[in-house]
């Protein structure tokens, strides 16, 4: 554990807490993409199966349990909570997220570390996480106002990605045999998607106008 990794994990944790706080207290999920949240729930469910097969640390296990619990809780709120589900922008959230799942799974079957059940699912979760934000970005583009909480949520998710890249660089230079191509490349793709979003987010914020992403 290094400072970049810890900062990354805490940003990730904080982004999810912000989103849960928004949904739980305001009873609204306006501007939040259910498609993205369902993809994240699938990402965590397929990545953290090793919770049952191996032990790394108490920190590791607790964080995994939190990510699993929180992602399914958010999906539950958006789909089934009497009040929250009414604020969901269903007509705007039209990204076909199923089209992301199959290519990621095929890629995981082709490019992986080891051809075992857990490893292929772990690899699938990395590929899927890289593109899981896409429905959220499309929704942000379509919704008139990016409210503060949703904007902050995406901001802290971006911070999480940035810190993880610093963590990989740090580990590469301080640990022997630390190189993880699959993790790095999918992580870079994911960060590039965020960087693109940030550019337009900051631009629209400075001009205080509606967020407009290129088609």
């Amino acid at each position: 554990m290094n400072i970049f990794r810890l900062a990354g994990d805490m940003s990730h944790l904080f982004s999810i807490l912000l989103l849960l706080l928004k949904i739980h207290t305001i009873k609204s999920c306006a501007g939040v993409s259910l498609k993205t949240q369902e993809l994240y729930a699938l990402v965590f469910a397929t990545r953290y199966l090793d919770i049952f097969t191996g032990y790394i640390s108490l920190y590791n296990t607790l964080m995994k349990m939190f990510f699993l619990w929180s992602s399914f809780t958010i999906v539950w709120y958006m789909r089934y909570h009497n009040v929250v589900r009414r604020s969901y922008d269903k007509d705007q959230d039209t990204f076909r997220h199923y089209f992301l799942i199959l290519p990621c799974f095929i890629l995981a079957l082709l490019v992986h570390e080891k051809f075992t059940f857990l490893e292929v699912l772990w690899t699938f979760s990395l590929y899927l996480e890289a593109v899981a934000i896409l429905p959220q970005l499309v929704l942000l583009q379509r919704t008139r106002n990016v409210d503060n909480l949703t904007g902050h949520y995406v901001f802290f998710l971006g911070a999480y990605r940035s810190f993880y890249i610093l963590n990989w660089i740090y580990r590469y230079f301080t640990e022997q045999n630390y190189y993880k191509w699959i993790t790095w490349i999918s992580g870079l793709v994911q960060t590039a998607l965020y960087a693109d979003f940030f550019y337009y987010y900051v631009k629209s914020w400075r001009n205080s106008e509606r967020l407009q992403l290129p088609a």
Partner: peptide
């Protein structure tokens, strides 16, 4: 080709 060991990152 990947490094050795379990996936210790989240």
């Amino acid at each position: 080709n990947q490094g050795e060991g379990p996936h210790d990152e989240l």
